[in-house]
């Protein structure tokens, strides 16, 4: 049952996403692109949520990816998305591999807090670099930020009116690859150990696997995901600021993962798209209280449907499926 339904849903979802640029108005297309880009970072955070760990610092790797675009454009004339996405992912992974050496020892709130501290350090550095080297050349643009410019695709610069479509499909492609990769990871022994950690850490070690190793590998993977996410988001938004590394951004990722539901891979995707739309419509209809609107929705999810939007969907699907079966029987 489970095995049968999922591929169908995946195919339908894939088709819907492929059709997005043809159906939706331009501004919604933009929202979905941004949501897909951020989805990668949300997926990274969701990996840890599965393991019962929260991180308030993954904006760090997101910012690494985004500034890869900013620096690449500024100094090396790099603006090819096919080159920058892997580059951002690798840099994210490298930073994660370094920070992860420390981080893999921590759990619970300490893990969350230490991540927060590291990302806030990066935030401070991005803010500062502008000034330390002001006399030479400005580096990060300080809080005013850097401009990303228009990406090229394997050297091809699409005409302006099609640029958004190119960007959308590129983002969709990367998101698809990421989904596949994460599925594979979760289906591997490491993936199962990760999930098991939430229940009992010591038993994993009894079975001969080092929990620290599991978390370290996950951390590096999550750094790569968030790095790629930053690259795509930077191209989509077009402007890069230190806020990419701010803890509120990390908080948003966790928020979105929970909104969509982190127990599954599609959950974060649903969450990311829902979040961008909720945020946009909240500020349309409640320009003064959009924060509160987000807070109330979140509160309702946590208290009534902790599995997130995806759990609600699965519940509905199950109910629908039962009715169908009953109809067949009758």
């Amino acid at each position: 049952m489970e095995r049968k339904r999922l591929p169908v849903a995946a195919v339908v979802a894939g088709l819907v996403l492929l059709a997005v640029p043809l159906v939706l108005p331009e501004w919604m297309k933009f929202i979905v692109t941004l949501a897909l880009a951020k989805f990668l970072a949300v997926l990274a955070v969701a990996l840890f949520l599965r393991a019962g760990m929260v991180t308030f610092g993954h904006a760090m790797f997101y910012a690494v990816g985004a500034y890869t675009v900013g620096f690449g454009a500024k100094w090396f004339g790099l603006r090819d998305i096919v080159l920058l996405v892997p580059l951002g992912a690798v840099l994210g992974a490298v930073v994660a591999a370094l920070v992860g050496l420390v981080m893999a020892r921590y759990r619970e709130v300490f893990f969350a807090m230490l991540n927060l501290a590291f990302s806030m350090m990066l935030y401070g550095v991005l803010l500062k670099l502008y000034w330390l080297l002001l006399k030479l050349y400005w580096l990060t643009g300080g809080t005013d930020g850097l401009s990303a410019g228009a990406p090229t695709f394997l050297g091809y610069a699409p005409p302006r009116e099609y640029l958004r479509d190119f960007l959308y499909y590129a983002t969709l492609l990367v998101a698809g690859l990421a989904i596949y990769g994460v599925y594979r990871f979760l289906a591997s022994p490491l993936g199962y150990y990760l999930k098991a950690r939430a229940d009992n850490e010591i038993r994993i070690e009894y079975s001969g696997e080092s929990v620290r190793h599991v978390i370290y590998v996950t951390y590096v993977l999550s750094g790569a995901l968030a790095g790629a996410s930053g690259v795509l988001a930077a191209f989509t938004v077009g402007h890069i600021v230190p806020e990419y590394a701010f803890w509120i951004q990390s908080g948003d990722f966790v928020f979105v993962a929970l909104l969509g539901g982190f127990e599954s891979v599609p959950g974060p995707l649903v969450g990311a798209i829902a979040f961008e739309f909720i945020r946009t419509y909240a500020s349309k209809y409640f320009p003064n209280e959009w924060q509160m609107t987000l807070g109330i929705i979140m509160l309702a999810i946590i208290l009534f449907r902790p599995g997130g939007l995806w759990a609600i969907y699965e519940e509905l699907a199950a109910r629908f499926g039962r009715r169908e079966r009953e109809a067949e029987r009758a």
């Binding site: 019962g52 969350a112 908080g251 966790v254 929970l258 987000l294 979140m298 509160l299």
Partner: peptide
Amino acid sequence: DQHITLLLTFSI
């Protein structure tokens, strides 16, 4: 889990 409490209080 810890993340539930963190996010609940974050919403508040």
